[in-house]
């Protein structure tokens, strides 16, 4: 197993490198650069001045040189300065928002797991029951309704009409600490969390149902029953472990899905995370910020896939030794 994990980590490295090249390349391809990107519209500035600035910022250096300057700073957490937020450092700008998005993502992933897996198991054990039909209906609903629309509905009914949940932000009073802060955060995260997690919950519910149904019909489950194992043992030991194997793999990809979904969901709820920052930075052509966020999201997705593969090798003994 360790061999497999090491091999998998080694594959991670070139992928990471490819990611940095792609992000850097995209930034190069984008119209404008660190100077023109911001002041395209300023015809009063002498082009000579631009040239001098460019030279000074190293924008005229050969591309590989620029790449290495960027990447070596980036690995130290230095993504340069924002061109919009009064030149504050990108790292500082991102830090707080990164945590917000991470919490939101984890929260909605937790909801997905807590809701989808038990319902999926129940549906598989009682196929064509009332609850199974209900879950199927919910699945269609969850998959077909656009995220932003569900978000707006949630705000309208649960926040404005009923006043159960706050519609935006991460905390009501800044200086909260301890559990109070934690629950206040959870309260704020609830609506964006279920909005973000809706599609995933619907998907995993269906996956779980079909996986469990599949496994329950397999020969080794019949063997377990023939051995006199209790229904509980058959379900939670013999079935679950097998049914979760493909689910775990998919969960790794889910990190990417959640992060991209977060861009829109955060916008709807005015949630100060990476998504809102990303959108505003793209609009403002704040390239250092855009690149930094693209890098972070890319790395998270790669890590998600890596974790999925590692978990996979832990739960499924068949792939450890190939």
């Amino acid at each position: 197993m360790y061999k497999y994990i090491i091999r998998r980590v080694l594959v991670f490295i070139p992928m990471l490198f490819a990611l940095t090249v792609i992000v850097f390349g995209l930034a190069l391809l984008a119209p404008g650069d660190a100077l023109t990107g911001q002041s395209l519209a300023d015809p009063n500035v002498d082009p000579e001045v631009y040239e001098q600035q460019r030279e000074a910022l190293g924008l005229n250096d050969p591309i590989p040189v620029q790449y290495f300057r960027w990447i070596s700073a980036a690995v130290q957490g230095d993504f340069g300065n924002s061109m919009v937020f009064n030149g504050r450092s990108v790292a500082e700008l991102i830090e707080a928002r990164f945590a917000n998005t991470l919490y939101l993502g984890l929260f909605s992933l937790a909801i997905t797991i807590i809701v989808a897996i038990p319902i999926g198991i129940y549906s598989a054990r009682h196929p064509y029951s009332l609850l199974d039909y209900g879950a199927t209906g919910f699945g269609f609903f969850g998959l077909s309704i656009p995220n932003f629309f569900f978000g707006l509905m949630a705000i309208y009914f649960l926040s404005i009409k009923l006043g159960w949940f706050p519609a935006q932000g991460t905390m009501s009073t800044p200086g909260l600490t301890g559990w109070e802060a934690f629950f206040n955060r959870l309260h704020h995260m609830f609506l964006p969390g279920i909005t973000l997690g809706l599609a995933g919950t619907a998907t995993y519910m269906r996956y779980m149902r079909s996986e469990v149904l599949d496994v329950l019909g397999s020969d080794y489950i019949r063997t377990a029953r023939a051995k006199g194992m209790s229904e509980r043992n058959v379900l939670y030991k013999h079935t679950l472990r097998n049914a979760l194997i493909p689910i775990i793999t998919l969960m790794g990809f889910e990190i990417g899905v959640l992060l991209s979904g977060a861009v829109i969901t955060e916008q709807v709820f005015q949630y100060p995370g990476l998504g809102t920052l990303f959108l505003s930075s793209v609009t403002n052509r704040d390239y250092p910020v855009v690149m930094a966020i693209a890098m972070i999201l890319g790395v998270l997705i790669l890590i998600g896939n890596l974790l999925a593969d590692i978990f996979y090798s832990i739960v499924d003994p068949r792939i450890r030794y190939d």
Partner: peptide, 19 residues
């Protein structure tokens, strides 16, 4: 089951739990 009556099946390749 398994205690008073035991059973063996046709397909040994799939009759044991792989994990």
């Amino acid at each position: 089951r398994g205690n008073d009556i035991a059973m063996i099946f046709q397909e040994p390749m799939t009759a044991l739990n792989p994990v």
